[in-house]
Structures are given as structure tokens and as C-alpha cells.
């Protein structure tokens, strides 16, 4: 298979970027999208050109590092699929493929397709944890029973891989799905209750500080999320934040 790639090239955070066109040939349908990028980079290096920088690591859909906006969609055309799990059989031979970085003020471009998502780390640092020391002697694990449904729902929220597809795909570059997934995980569990109100306040405050946009409930994030994180989580966060403001805790 052969493709024409239109790729965003940007030297560094301060430089201007532009779309560049590259032909790539000899692609097989069972290659992953990132392997196709490997082929391109191999060609570029052999031709003495600068290879395209992109983030990737586990290549099995769980680390959350890969982050390409492919043909107008975060992680490409397939649902519940990260870029690394996307295969070239999902594209037509001869197709032109647009590849862009996540675009958001809060995710500045590092180089080419790699962006800086440390804003997500800072949001977790603002309150995405249960304050418990590891050197103490906590209760026996089974001393805290958790209803199975709550545990399962908390798990579903906790499967967020922090890739940023929600921000990338949201027309407002809002991080609500990411933040609400972590808020929800702890809101659903007994362990998260003592800090529930302060946590949601601190995390929302940090989210605002990072310069993400506002949620307008379009629901695009839920559709593009490779882990299928639900909008229910955003509603839960809205509810908890409102409650925290009303009760003034």
C-alpha cells in the first residue's frame, strides 16, 4: 500500500509549524499506524532528512503515550482504539492521511507530533489521590467492603490512560473527561470519601489554571476516548463540585 502523508512539522515549542507532504510506499495492511511511521522515518533518515518526532511507548494501547490526530480524529477513525493499535488495513490504498499533534494551549508542542501533557500530571498532583502513607499499617484490605457495582464503576473510570484524546477532540479543548474520571473513581469508593469535596475543588481549580477550555457537553470526548470513559463521570463531577460549593466544605 502507498499513502500520501500530510504531517505537522514543528521544530520546537517556540517555532512556527507547518503541514508537510510525504509519500510513503511499501506499507502492508497488517502494519500498525506507528510502524508505518517507523517506515517513513527510516526513509527520512536514509535520505538525510529530519525524522518525524512522535510519542509512543507500550504499543499495546495502555500506556497512553501515543497521541496523533489522524484524518481529523483523535487516534484515527476506529473507536476505542489508540493510535498504536490502529492498523493500516483501516485505510484505503493511495489515501491521503492528515497527521497532526493534539492541539490545545494546555498541551504545547514539544516537536512535530509530540506534545507536553504535564498539565495532566499537575491536575493529579492537585488532588487525584487518597492521602494515605505507605509506611503505616493500613487496615486489612477486606475490612473495607465495597459493593461490586461501585467497585466496577470505579474501575471503569480508573481505566483512563491519560492520553489526552478527550482534550484533543473537544472543540473547546476541555479536560473535563480526564479530570472527572479520576474524581469519579474516588467519589465511588469509600476510601475516597474523606477528601471527596476538597479533591473535586482542587482538581477543578488546577484544571482551570492550566488553560483548558470549558465543557459544552458535546459528548465528543466520550466517543473518541480509547477506553470508553463515560460522560456520567462528568455529570458526577459537576454534581460534586456544586455540592462542594454549596456546602462550603
Amino acid at each position: 500500500m502507498d499513502f500520501t502523508l500530510k504531517i505537522w512539522r514543528q521544530e520546537g515549542p517556540q517555532e512556527e509549524g507547518r503541514m508537510e507532504t510525504y509519500p510513503v510506499t511499501g506499507i502492508t495492511h497488517d502494519m500498525s499506524f506507528l510502524e508505518m511511521m517507523d517506515v517513513l522515518n527510516d526513509q527520512l533518515i536514509r535520505d538525510g532528512q529530519d525524522p518525524v518526532a512522535f510519542d509512543h511507548d507500550c504499543r499495546e494501547g495502555i500506556c497512553g503515550m501515543c497521541s496523533m490526530f489522524i484524518n481529523g480524529e483523535a487516534h484515527g477513525p476506529n473507536r476505542k482504539t489508540t493510535t498504536c493499535q490502529l492498523h493500516m488495513r483501516s485505510f484505503k490504498d493511495g489515501e491521503t492521511i492528515y497527521i497532526e499533534p493534539w492541539r490545545a494551549a494546555a498541551f504545547p508542542v514539544v516537536k512535530d507530533l509530540a506534545v507536553d501533557r504535564s498539565a495532566f500530571d499537575r491536575i493529579i498532583q492537585s488532588g487525584g489521590y487518597v492521602s494515605v502513607n505507605s509506611s503505616g499499617n493500613p487496615l486489612d484490605a477486606n475490612a473495607i467492603p465495597v459493593p461490586k457495582d461501585d467497585a466496577d464503576e470505579a474501575f471503569n473510570a480508573a481505566t483512563c490512560i491519560g492520553c489526552g484524546a478527550c482534550v484533543a477532540t473537544c472543540k473547546n479543548a476541555s479536560a473535563m473527561l480526564f479530570v472527572s474520571a479520576k474524581v469519579s473513581q474516588f467519589a465511588l469508593l469509600p476510601q475516597g470519601q474523606p477528601e471527596r469535596m476538597s479533591r473535586v475543588q482542587r482538581m477543578v481549580d488546577q484544571m482551570d489554571k492550566e488553560g483548558f477550555g470549558n465543557c459544552t457537553n458535546t459528548g465528543a470526548c466520550e466517543v473518541e476516548c480509547p477506553k470508553g470513559i463515560s460522560l456520567d463521570n462528568i455529570a458526577r463531577m459537576n454534581r460534586d463540585y456544586l455540592k462542594s460549593q454549596v456546602t462550603g466544605e
Partner: peptide, 21 residues
Amino acid sequence: NIIDQCVSQGVPFARDYGGLL
């Protein structure tokens, strides 16, 4: 101890219908 520690941190391990691990 690891399991105790992780549960206290809010790690959502699989549970049975009685709510136990």
C-alpha cells in the same frame, strides 16, 4: 501488606457480590 496498601489508596480490585476482594 501490598494488597492492604493498594486498597487503602483506592485501587479498584475486582470484588465479589459480597463486596470483598
